[in-house]
Each structure stands twice: as structure tokens, then as C-alpha cells.
């Protein structure tokens, strides 16, 4: 197989292109990778293995995943201890209560506490609860993060702007194809008066992986 055509398109991250609602403009040159996909798609359709409509429908399902869905689960857990208990027991089942469908085999929620901070990685690939949270951040997929998160998590977190005191244990969870994780962060102090919706807005994508923690809006 010929893999010579991609030239400089092989970087792990960042081509600086904005998300495009439909497709690349025609003035963006085709890469070997894109051409190879287009060829594959047309052959699969010709052979009757898939239809263009089926691909479109599946794309719509994939586009439902986004970090706000995870943030909604966290905010509900903060305001409803019974829900939190169910989320910690089986996050995939708990998601259904909010109308969210997790298609990965198993989803486990790890709770941050004053004594323990959790960080999620997938050292072998890039396993991530995509159906709930959407595509993972580029850094999560990067080889550098996958290598270092299990060896020097505190240093990695410091680089992310999160200084975990030595008195707090850091637990790193290595995802795999059958088992995906979500972090249940601690509710920040000074948020007693906030609504569930306002609380959810404090929970960013990186909080759900343990690479950040929610901050009080007044902090």
C-alpha cells in the first residue's frame, strides 16, 4: 500500500481549519487520506454494503455527542444525591434518566473527592465516551499525553494549569475498548445559589476527563 502521498498532512494535531458545516471548500486541496476515504465510500455504496443516507443518519447520531451532555449529568449529580449514587453505580444507565444514550459498552464515573483526583487516559488508542461527550480533545489523542499521563500525571496536570497538592492522591484510569470513563468533579464552593443549568455551565469538557476542575463563577 502506498502511504507516501500525505506529505505534511500527517501531524497528530491542528491544521488550523475551522469546523465546516458541510464539507471542505473546493479550494482546500484533497489529501491522500480524504481521497482514499471518498474512494472507499463510493465503492462501499456501489457494492451495496452501505447507502449514502445511512452514512448521513449515522453522522447525525454521532453529532449528538458533546461535553454539555456530560456536564448535565455532573450538575444533576451535584443537586440530587440519589442520582449521583446511580451515576456512580452505572453511569450508562444513569445517562438514560436524562434522555442521553451511551452506545459504548460500559461507562464508569470516577468521583473526585478532597482526598483523590481522577485523570482519564487511553494509553493504547484514544478510547473515549464519544457517544456522550463527542470527539475527544486533540491533546487526549496525542501520543505525548498517552505516554506521559500514566508516568507523571501531576506534572502533566501542572502543565494544564492544575496544581494538585501532594496530600491529594492522583489516580489515573486507563480506558479501553470495552470500558470508558467520565470524571465526576467536585462542586465548587460558593455555588449554593446556582440552578442546575448554571451549574452545568461550570463543567467544561476538560473537567470531565480530570484535566481541569470546575471553578466558582465568583472565584
Amino acid at each position: 500500500m502506498d502511504h507516501e502521498h500525505d506529505g505534511h498532512e500527517h501531524h497528530e494535531h491542528g491544521r488550523g481549519l475551522p469546523p465546516h458545516p458541510t464539507r471542505e471548500d473546493d479550494d482546500v486541496a484533497l489529501t491522500y487520506g480524504e481521497a482514499r476515504y471518498l474512494a472507499l465510500k463510493s465503492l462501499l455504496i456501489e457494492k451495496g454494503l452501505v447507502t449514502a443516507d445511512e452514512i448521513r443518519r449515522r453522522l447525525e447520531i454521532n453529532e449528538r455527542g458533546n461535553p454539555q451532555q456530560g456536564a448535565r449529568m455532573v450538575a444533576r449529580a451535584w443537586v440530587d444525591p440519589a442520582f449521583k449514587a446511580r451515576m456512580l453505580a452505572d453511569a450508562k444507565e444513569a445517562a438514560k434518566e436524562l434522555g442521553l444514550e451511551v452506545t459504548e459498552a460500559k461507562l464508569v464515573a470516577m468521583e473526585n473527592t478532597p482526598a483523590c483526583h481522577n485523570l482519564i487516559v487511553c494509553t493504547l488508542c484514544s478510547c473515549y465516551p464519544r457517544s456522550l461527550l463527542g470527539e475527544p480533545p486533540a491533546w487526549y489523542v496525542s501520543k505525548a499525553y498517552r505516554s506521559r499521563a500514566v508516568r507523571e500525571p501531576r506534572k502533566v496536570l501542572r502543565e494544564f494549569g492544575l496544581d494538585i497538592p501532594e496530600t491529594v492522591e492522583v489516580r489515573v484510569h486507563d480506558s479501553n475498548a470495552d470500558l470508558r470513563y467520565i470524571v465526576l468533579p467536585m462542586r465548587p464552593a460558593g455555588t449554593e445559589g446556582l440552578s442546575e443549568e448554571e451549574l452545568a455551565a461550570l463543567v467544561t469538557r476538560d473537567c470531565l476527563v480530570g484535566a481541569a476542575v470546575p471553578r466558582s463563577p465568583n472565584a
Binding site: 475551522p18 469546523p19 471542505e24 486533540a138 505525548a144 506521559r148 500514566v150 508516568r151 486507563d174
Partner: peptide, 18 residues
């Protein structure tokens, strides 16, 4: 996992349509 590696890229990657 555990291998030495350099800086973790922090730029966001936006998937293109293909």
C-alpha cells in the same frame, strides 16, 4: 503508556468533514 515524551499539544483539533 509510560514512555518518555515531550510537550503535549494544546491546540484544538477540529475534525474536517471527511
Amino acid at each position: 503508556g509510560g514512555l518518555p515524551a515531550g510537550a503535549i499539544p494544546r491546540e484544538e483539533y477540529h475534525m474536517v468533514f471527511w
